[in-house]
Design a protein around this nucleic acid. Sequence first.
DNA 1: CGCTTAATTGAACATACTCAAAATTTGTGG
DNA 2: CCACAAATTTTGAGTATGTTCAATTAAGCG
Lengths: 237, 237
Amino acid sequence: MRRLKSEIPDCVNCLNKGNSIICSLSTDSKSTLTKGKGENFFKKGQVIFYEGNHVNGLFCVFDGKVKLSKMGESGKEQIVRFAKTGDILGYRSLLSNDSYKATATAMEDSWVCVISKEQFNKAMVNDSNLAVSILRLLSNDLKNAEHQLVNLSQKSVLERMSEAIILLDNNFGREEDGLTLNVNLTRSELADIAGTTTETAIRTLAQLKEEGTIDLGEKKIRIIDLKNLIRIAGLQD
Amino acid sequence: MRRLKSEIPDCVNCLNKGNSIICSLSTDSKSTLTKGKGENFFKKGQVIFYEGNHVNGLFCVFDGKVKLSKMGESGKEQIVRFAKTGDILGYRSLLSNDSYKATATAMEDSWVCVISKEQFNKAMVNDSNLAVSILRLLSNDLKNAEHQLVNLSQKSVLERMSEAIILLDNNFGREEDGLTLNVNLTRSELADIAGTTTETAIRTLAQLKEEGTIDLGEKKIRIIDLKNLIRIAGLQD
DNA sequence: CGCTTAATTGAACATACTCAAAATTTGTGG
DNA sequence: CCACAAATTTTGAGTATGTTCAATTAAGCG
């Protein structure tokens, strides 16, 4: 997984073919974006950018997993979104020329490309497909945020934790065994997704294991009964 | 307030000059949008469109106040946004050609214009300013939704209710006395903003009145001590 | 004026949080 | 590779916040 910088190609020849919205742009646009592009390695746990910091570019995950979180006044973290290989980060702040509105942290060792603000703006002007793609991303993010908003205010921790696991499943998929979630999270991070405390998260996961809905080994979660998770989360219809 | 249909002008001559993103478009774009535009009157409490219904146009509030809410599985409502005179509704669903993702309800007698999907798409293609405006709206909505998401998961009802009142203040402003919020909401609706029950909303408002932070007369809320509201909501920094 | 809806109050109860302590795992330097 | 420190996970018990349900009062409306 750990790569040499020289292994990372420019946007035109990027390996994340199907995954990234950048990959589906015209060669022209990709050439524009790749100019002055930087590649950065982030160790697991390292912060890529902080909420409130001023914007210096568009981030694109070349390889890795990133969490986006916001800090409440009390200092508690709430995870608002994830980004995985091929996903882009920071577009909203870039558009409004605002500071970053969430903190991005590498969830595992990750390579992240940084596209300069100037080149991004150039590409936006010349390629309406890029604008449309960004519009779609925003639109989707908003849909998810509003869904999560209703969840947090109305569902129990058990329901929210079930939905959090489903979210992780949809986002990161499973390992070869077809059961184990392909992502490593601490109990505290799971709590930060479901919007609860570490202790309650632990007890809730134990309950789901008890019922045979999930299995917990090492640090990973295995989904045994997805149907039941969906039922508990109240997503069946 | 109740108007005759004939009093509502076309988009080019719309009275909401400064308020609407449509008003700041080129005359060309406004001419496009106004073609096949319909004007509808909605009585207080009437639903303008339902969550899940298929999209048939872009709504623009000519005069009135509208709440956008989502239904949780349990049937409880959560208000996610407001729209007032000049604001537009339904753009997200229109963009992704999706069903409406929230239910829009008139909070008072309102006139709402409906712009056809076809004309909107035409204007989007011809006028990049429209696309940029929509991008900004989406971006702003997302910012608010994520903020609210963190609030709901981390703040107490008292904090949330204080913030709800501040939100109403920012959105709808005050009446002539400079104190009374220029919006009428039931206790149940206030609960639906703050993400709590009607009973708890009542008790929380009583507490804020007790402290002298707000005043409650007839059906309206008067803000006595905005600073304190801001402090309670945890927004001072 | 009577009926319906909304607001209020009370009391019991449940869910989830807090704090503290113990057990376990992980990471690091020697 | 081991030992130790640090971080994470787990468990327990007490507690607070907010919900639920039921009953009462007040307000709005035809």
